[in-house]
Nucleic acid binder design. Structure first.
Lengths: 250, 250
DNA sequence: CCTCAAGGTGTACGGCGTACACCTGATGGA
DNA sequence: TCCATCAGGTGTACGCCGTACACCTTGAGG
């Protein structure tokens, strides 16, 4: 029996939902419940059956509101992407883009399942397209050529949506993320450290001033901004010197 | 009935495998067949049952050689990562790292299912650790502090393994990738272009000199190297000026 | 009052991963 | 030579999954 954010079990919440069942289903109610379920129990326990149970309804009822599970995922993604802050007005392109990306990152930290979900769907949803379009608009307004803007969007890749692919990403693990998982950094086990000495060396190398980061876990936010600024600074430099993709390095 | 690379159907290949069944199963034979199946038919058709059929064997037989499907995927990943070229000797860190990353990219282009598989497994496999360790070693040998090397590894993220998350990545689509899918760039449909004018504008903006890239499809390799060099140049600059993460921006 | 459609229900099918008991054929010590 | 052992392939079965399809209920409009 696993407790969730509000200290209720999932089944208790299902019963509670059961008493409220009279409020009819709707697409947004389904999507909201799906996002909540994925947030609390992990994406791997988002099945049509579990979702229906949380809503106090029989599985097939969901299909009156979403076409199928893929379309459900698309709807969830759109809902999440819609949480990203609008651009701040009256600022130069660099601050606007930086701000939106950091906002996107905050959103995705509330929905740890979203990056993988976004990556596994193979076409962008309307909300994602709208967001990307808006970012391109910021660049163009900042004086970027369409050509450079194009390459910049590619260079940012998924980072533009607030996540970088971290390879060893503790927060990505599918498990139930409702409770703040203490999960001590687990200083890579000695036999691993012996086999991979360079990894062992850099594992604890990040010198963080404040004590908010325990042990040798590293500060995700810092690493994200490090990479983000590395890219933004490089982009700014190209922009200032009027870079254009004329001759290609073959 | 769908033909594969060699012009045989999957079932024909299974029959062929059936005649060769006498050669006993082994872990590497299982892994090789799994990689081949994923390469040809897409990761979504890699099931224990399909794989067993390709090997002319009953599904449960596989479990004598791999613990379960997750461990099978780990083994496949290790096999793929093992294809990455070793570092070229006698070159400065930048060329060595650049070369290895481009080699990794070539490998992953042969196995389009691998990026998603790598991302969805939540811990690194031994082969990935060995590869990363070797890259860190190159940086350290090039004079990087452990601190800077740490941040650099984070900044490169998944790009260090040869893929960037592209958001709309045609080559990522799950479908059968054996045949060169012509799939014309499909100049985003007019009603989409109307709703997202900035995207429409940059869609065809990349000016590629040679004609190898048809229509307004953009050159993946160019975009990848653009981002890679943006990062490497920024990193080189930090390295030269002795960057260290002393004061953090709050 | 009757109709009709929107929306929730029940049953069922085929596919998945895999637990568990079983069989089989080669191997090696007595 | 014989028989025990055991690695490795087999068959059956269970509980999940997504979802097709026929059905029933209910409330609003002519």
């Amino acid at each position: 029996m696993v407790s969730t954010v509000a200290g209720k079990t999932r089944t208790e919440m299902a019963e509670q939902a059961d008493t409220l069942r009279r409020t009819p289903l709707s697409r947004t109610r389904v999507l909201r419940a799906a996002v909540a379920l994925a947030d609390e129990a992990g994406i791997e326990s988002l099945s049509m059956r579990n979702l229906a149970q949380d809503l106090g309804v029989v599985p097939m009822a969901l299909y009156k509101h979403v076409a199928n599970k893929d379309e459900l995922l698309d709807g969830m993604i759109d809902m999440v992407v819609g949480e990203i802050d609008p651009p701040v007005p009256d600022a130069d392109w660099k601050h606007v883009v930086r701000g939106r990306i950091l906002s996107a990152r905050q959103v995705l930290r509330r929905h740890p399942w979203a990056p993988l979900a976004i990556e596994s769907r193979n076409m962008a949803t309307p909300a994602i397209l709208a967001y990307l379009d808006s970012v391109v608009g910021t660049l163009r307004a900042g004086g970027f050529t369409a050509d450079l803007a194009h390459h910049v969007m590619h260079a940012m890749g998924s980072r533009i949506l607030g996540f970088s692919q971290e390879l060893f990403d503790a927060s990505r693990r599918a498990g139930r993320s409702g409770i703040a998982d203490p999960d001590p950094p687990a200083a890579l086990p000695p036999e691993v450290a012996a086999r991979f000495p360079h990894l062992a060396e850099i594992a604890g190398a990040a010198s963080h001033d404040d004590a908010s980061v325990v042990g040798q876990g590293c500060d995700d936010q810092f690493e994200f901004e490090f990479a983000l600024d590395l890219l933004l600074d490089g982009i700014e430099r190209l922009h200032q010197q009027g870079w254009t993709s004329s001759r290609r390095p073959r």
